[in-house]
């Protein structure tokens, strides 16, 4: 049921939003019942019958003043509470722990100050957090229902979101701005840990992707393809030859294809050089029939070593 009747508040923002909501809903319910009950009462009381003459009343200035004046006070109060809550939600303490977020179709990357990268958000309980968010492609929106907050992640801009979790646990993160085919599957989680566990996790240099049991992610039998999965390639590309959003990886080495380079069609033969260029400069050559601008450059997503591995994996898929 609705959390706001139980006082269950996993984050500071939960209470803030629930209180404003409760205030507005309470006034609204009174108004709704008032209007509806009066209307139904009048319909019965002044039901048309013989000998009952209607009275023409053209209006009443005092009543007009009352029902403009009182609602004005009510809505200004609603605005004011909303403003107060908003100031709290947007306030960022100076010691806030900053985490960079990159959204892409259809996954999330969280980059920590010490270089750690994850696809779920790990945070310590009680500590103010500031998420600095960018998009690699279209608009998204980072939404944490349990914390009652969201903020759009806008292509070409940097936006932020700030909060402090109060209760340890695992809460859903959803994408709330429509972003195409798998919009509804762009879920991940925020995992709130106590300070000690978080420190341990944060300073653990072990490869994070191995430790993420919480995030359901299909594992492929060939280990090299797991890397493609982790890096987000598999959200659009496939290894089985099906091509819905992007060319498939299956057996592409040595094939000829028509590409558009600066709007001019030309034929290329797929080789290592072509694959490498397509990863770093995806829009330099667009395979005919696919859209320009769909794929962001992977320069920042891959280091030298990873790039070599990714190219190698793609070339090995038959």
């Amino acid at each position: 049921m609705l959390g706001f009747f139980t006082g269950y508040a996993p984050a500071s923002t939960t209470e803030t939003v629930d209180n404003v909501m409760l205030f507005i809903v309470a006034i609204s319910v009174v108004l709704l019942i008032g209007v509806t009950a009066t209307m139904i009462f009048f319909v019965f009381k002044y039901h048309r019958k013989k000998g009952h003459k209607p009275v023409d009343i053209h209006g009443n200035l005092l009543l007009e003043v009352i029902w403009i004046g009182i609602p004005t006070i009510l809505v200004l109060a609603m605005f004011y509470y909303g403003y107060l809550g908003f100031s709290q939600i947007r306030y960022i303490p100076e010691d806030a722990f900053q985490i960079n977020v990159t959204a892409r179709m259809w996954s999330w990357d969280f980059n920590y100050p010490n270089g750690k990268k994850t696809d779920s958000l790990y945070i310590p309980v009680g500590k103010p957090i500031k998420l600095i968010m960018e998009s690699a492609d279209v608009n998204h929106s980072l939404f944490i229902p349990a914390f009652r907050i969201k903020e759009d992640v806008i292509a070409g801009r940097t936006t932020y979101l700030s909060f402090a979790a109060q209760v340890e646990g695992r809460y859903d993160i959803a994408c709330a701005e429509y972003c195409g085919l798998k919009h509804s599957m762009m879920y991940t989680a925020v995992i709130v840990m106590d300070e000690k566990n978080f420190e341990k996790w944060y300073n653990d240099s072990e490869d994070i992707s191995e430790t993420q049991e919480e995030v359901a992610m299909a594992k492929f039998e060939i280990p090299s393809i797991n890397l493609l999965q982790e890096k987000g390639c598999m959200t659009c590309h496939t290894i089985d030859g099906s091509e819905k959003l992007a060319p498939s990886f299956k057996g592409i080495v040595g094939t000829k294809r028509i590409v558009l380079t600066d709007g001019v069609e030309r034929e290329v033969i797929v080789d290592e050089e072509y694959i490498r260029r397509s990863i770093l400069y995806p829009n330099a050559d667009i395979v005919k029939g696919f859209a320009f601008g769909m794929m962001p450059t992977q320069t920042y997503n891959l280091n030298e070593e990873e790039l070599d591995k990714v190219v190698e994996s793609i070339m090995s898929i038959n």
């Binding site: 803030t16 507005i24 903020e151």
Partner: peptide, 14 residues
């Protein structure tokens, strides 16, 4: 009125 409030809208928007 709920949606007009910047605080409540941050949760229920979209």
């Amino acid at each position: 009125l709920v949606l007009g409030s910047i605080t409540a809208d941050i949760h229920v928007h979209d």
